[in-house]
Amino acid sequence: MLKDDFKNLLKQVQADIKSNMTKDDWLALEKKYLGRKGELNKLMDSLKTLAVEEKREVGKLANAVKLELENFFHKQKSIFNPVDENKTFDLTLPGEKYNIGHLHPITQIQEELEEIFASMGFIVEDGPEVESEYYNFDALNIPAHHPARDMQDTFFTAEGNVLRTHTSSVQVRAMEKYGTPLRCIVPGKVFRNEATDASHDHTFYQLEGLMIDKNISITNLIAVMKELLRGIFKQEVTVRLRPGFFPFVEPGFELDIKCLICRGNGCSVCKQSGWLELLPCGLIHPNVLRAGGIDPAEWSGFAFGLGLTRLVMMRYGIEDIRLLFGNDLRFLKQF
């Protein structure tokens, strides 16, 4: 039977092998079996005579035998030409171009921050972008007609709500939802009715942070901020705290870091001051705790706001904020 003939072919080859064969001997032997008029092709020719279904089965076997023989001879020949293979192709040709996409740089930095905070026990919370005046202002100790409302130019919707001007709008929502103790961050989109230029946009990203527990102090705030900044910048950073006014904290601070580019000697990035304003923060105002149903006599906490967009720009040296929402693929491709 033809099937057996194919199987026997392998045995025949084995029988033909002698000791001390030269390279030419191997070539001759290969030709005998795999040459155009070799033993294998002879058997292949007889496949035609079989019925369709038999052809399928035997054909499969024939292919397997052919493959085995080819491998066998290839191996034997390579003993005589060990480096041959490496010399035969141009290693400098470009590698295969895999199509790998790109996450937006804001997404990448946001995820990095979420991981840092998660490792410190912070919940990642989210809130509405069309927000009520209550959560955006009143609950944060910014009553109507207070000059502090001018600190943020606000978009109003026709039905009387606002586009949140800061992620701080989620502070009281989070207090109501989780109670105490609380550690949470809120990354997200915020809106300001401001003219656009290279460093201002009407839309940008912030990350709000909140920690409420027993006896939280200013020295606690400084320590957590330093820890966080070490996580972000992957190095020890020098910080300084100075007074800053935000109605939802008391006392309120601006936290500056020593410029990482000039190490505090003064450069164009820090406007020669040696310091970069990075993080407004403070102890949560008792009125805000009360709005969140928390007793300020029993609990205290701190809040801070990170300019996520600014951080992205600092990280990658992006000088024009408008590139971030321009969605030019030549820009996005770089991240």
Partner: peptide, 23 residues
Amino acid sequence: RIYGYDKFKPDLPVVKLTSPQKS
């Protein structure tokens, strides 16, 4: 502010260990 924030020494808060939930 008059005492001087530069004289404050950082002090990590002591809090209960919790694993943060994620929505």
